[in-house]
């Protein structure tokens, strides 16, 4: 057999086998991966808007949000997935808001690649819990190295002002956009 033809045939053969095997593996794992993503979404929504019974995904233009209802079908809040740049990479989070958007009911940091031990501490519960009950008007702010005295402020993580500020900025920017469409 022609040597070139043999090379071509062998490479094509291996590529086909590889493709076949992988599509099989994908077929099995795709539903599981999908379920994982949904479960994670569900957990973070329940986490940021307390006391809800059901939620519904809404898409308005480029924005996606979740309308959260209690057992009697009353809208008790919104969950807003948001992302933006942090100090080292993209930060993804979920913000929970009251129906009039005046107060944050909770936040949940979903993904971040900030410096471990410094900016990475935005993932700690203590930092995230600060956002509960924070007022959104005129805007969420932060203070350094002291307990905040305004009801719109949170305390930045020591030594990680940029990461903390990024979280605040992401939240503010998305709330402003959300007000426009609601």
């Amino acid at each position: 057999m022609n040597r070139r033809l043999k090379m071509l045939l062998i490479m094509t053969l291996f590529a086909c086998i590889s493709g076949g095997v992988l599509s099989l593996v994908y077929l099995i794992s795709a539903p599981l991966i999908e379920a994982n993503m949904l479960e994670e979404e569900r957990r973070s929504i329940l986490n940021v808007v307390p006391g809800i019974d059901s939620y519904e995904e809404r898409i308005e233009g480029e924005m996606k949000y979740f309308e959260c209802k209690d057992a009697s079908g009353f809208v008790v809040g919104y969950a807003l997935p948001a992302k933006g740049n942090g100090y080292q990479g993209v930060i993804k989070l979920m913000v929970g808001l009251t129906p009039d958007l005046s107060e944050i009911t909770g936040i949940s940091i979903l993904e971040q690649v900030e410096t471990p031990g410094l900016g990475g501490r935005i993932s700690e519960q203590v930092f995230q819990d600060q956002f509960q009950g924070i007022k959104t008007e005129p805007a969420v702010g932060y203070v350094k190295n002291q307990a905040p005295d305004k009801d719109t402020d949170i305390q930045a993580v020591t030594g990680a002002t940029i990461s903390s500020r990024s979280v605040v900025t992401i939240i503010n920017r998305n709330i402003v956009k959300f007000r426009e469409i609601l």
């Binding site: 043999k6 090379m7 490479m11 590529a15 590889s18 992988l22 593996v25 794992s29 991966i33 994982n36």
Partner: peptide
Amino acid sequence: IIPKQVRIPVFIVIIATFVTMVDLFLKA
């Protein structure tokens, strides 16, 4: 059965197949 000239691409395809499997497994 692999011709010498194309052994590296074939090895990479084989390796990439198993790596993708691990990646999907971890995600699932």
